[in-house]
Write a protein that binds this DNA or RNA. Structure first.
Length: 408
DNA sequence: TCTGGGGTCCTAGGACCC
DNA sequence: TCTGGGGTCCTAGGACCC
């Protein structure tokens, strides 16, 4: 028999911001940006949630609901730092830890009984340690499956511990809304409601074959989930396996839509630099490059191209992206968002770029130097994008290593 | 209600191969 | 002359998660 903990930090981004500015404590706080900006709520304090504010809500809407809230920008570095602290606490507690996102983790508690005693006692011990070490609150769900542990940590919020005793899974799940099942979002919820299915119990009573016929592979997984089983999807892999990223992407939404080619291509160059940099950090070479384009009316297209050999070089990424952009952008149409994604890692020999080996080496050294400068002086220290407005073509021709030329 | 950014997984069709 | 059956790779879109 297995015992899993799901540890979920309470209002994580808000709580971290409160550590930096204690005057925020207890107040309605919205993390994500200023109330008049294009963007959505990343996190809302419990005081703000009372007004109906929740994450993913447009900032402007949040402002209408709760104008007295303090709106703060997000600080990803701070969250990464605290996420690491959280991980340290968890890893010291049990070696089998898997961070599921920046603010939540699964622990496999197999064989820890002698050390910590029964599950509830162990969870309270961990709960206290988390608070002492990080000054942050968390909620802990305990169950025989990861799925039920996750749902029970949600039910335990805020700042609580909840153990679903083995054998009680179905009884625990039955009265909950189907939306509580991870993987059931707006659309699936609507589809289930249309069939008269509102509670997890309604789902569990249904015939598996019916669900499969109606929802395909998903239906099968759904049938298992309604009974608390880790079947299908994300819950299949063992805890502790870290396989590295499958894709790396960056995107940008303009504060005002634009149809200015120079501006658009300069943004693409910057996004390519950011993607390239992360590829080099992970020592990955991407074979597939994807452009994402969103117009003013929010209609969105993606266009991808795969090459035989992978790349991690800004300019090679940019050449692919620029071609995709030029052949797919409805010329003159105002653009809301641009995105660049790299995926399909090449391995071994395939990692050699299209360039000759020697030039390739020089390029890598140049980029490594640029990466170091960025570490020191920030993202804008060195830029291909900044040099673009003057005409990228000419520049690349006469100076293939044009990258390090510009300093701001 | 005028809708971020970074990810994962699934589906489905077409190309291509044997 | 009435139309195989896999398998794999690529591409596009969409649901979902935090």
């Amino acid at each position: 028999m297995r015992t899993y903990f799901h540890v979920d930090m309470d209002a994580f981004f808000v709580s971290v911001e409160e550590l930096y500015d204690p005057s925020l404590r207890g107040k309605p706080v919205v993390v994500g940006g200023r109330p008049d900006e294009r963007g959505v709520v990343s996190a809302a304090s419990y005081a703000a949630r009372k007004f109906g504010v929740h994450s993913a809500m447009p900032l402007r809407t949040a402002y209408k609901l709760c104008p007295q809230a303090t709106f703060v920008d997000g600080h990803p570095e701070r969250y990464r730092e605290y996420s690491h602290k959280v991980y340290e606490v968890l890893h010291a507690f049990s070696p089998l830890v898997e961070m599921a996102s920046i603010d939540e983790a699964y622990l496999d508690m197999a064989g820890t009984e002698r050390l910590y005693g029964p599950p509830l006692r162990a969870a309270h011990l961990l709960h206290n340690r988390m608070k002492e070490s990080t000054r942050l609150n968390c909620s802990i769900g305990i169950a025989q499956s990861r799925l039920v542990a996750k749902i029970s940590s949600d039910q335990a919020k805020p700042n609580g511990v909840l153990w679903v005793i083995p054998g009680q899974e179905s009884a625990f799940l039955a009265p909950l809304d189907v939306r509580k099942v991870p993987g059931v979002g707006k659309v699936t919820e609507r589809n289930l409601h249309a069939l008269g299915i509102r509670k997890v119990g309604d789902l569990a009573r249904l015939d598996e074959a019916f669900l499969e016929q109606r929802f395909g592979k998903w239906g099968m997984a759904l049938a298992g989930k309604s009974r608390g089983l880790d079947a299908g999807g994300w819950f299949d892999t063992e805890i502790g396996e870290d396989e590295g990223p499958k894709s790396i992407s960056h995107e940008h939404t303009y504060s005002e839509d634009t149809a200015d080619v120079a501006q658009l291509e300069s943004t693409l160059a910057r996004l390519c630099e950011m993607v390239g940099r992360r590829l080099r950090e992970h020592n990955l070479h991407a074979r597939t490059i994807q452009l994402k384009l969103r117009y003013s009316d929010f209609s969105t297209i993606t266009r991808a191209h795969s090459v035989a050999r992978g790349t991690q070089l800004d300019t090679e990424l940019f050449e692919e992206i620029r071609d995709l952009f030029r052949s797919n952008w409805k010329s003159g149409a105002a653009v809301r968002l641009l995105g660049v994604q790299a995926s399909g890692w090449a391995e071994g020999d395939e990692q050699l770029s299209l360039m000759g080996e020697e030039r390739h080496e020089r390029w890598k050294q140049t980029l490594a130097a640029a990466d170091r400068l960025r570490d020191k002086f920030g993202e804008s220290a060195v830029s291909l994008a900044a040099s673009l407005r003057g005409g990228f073509r000419e520049r690349t021709h006469e100076n293939p290593a044009g990258l390090p030329g510009k300093k701001k």
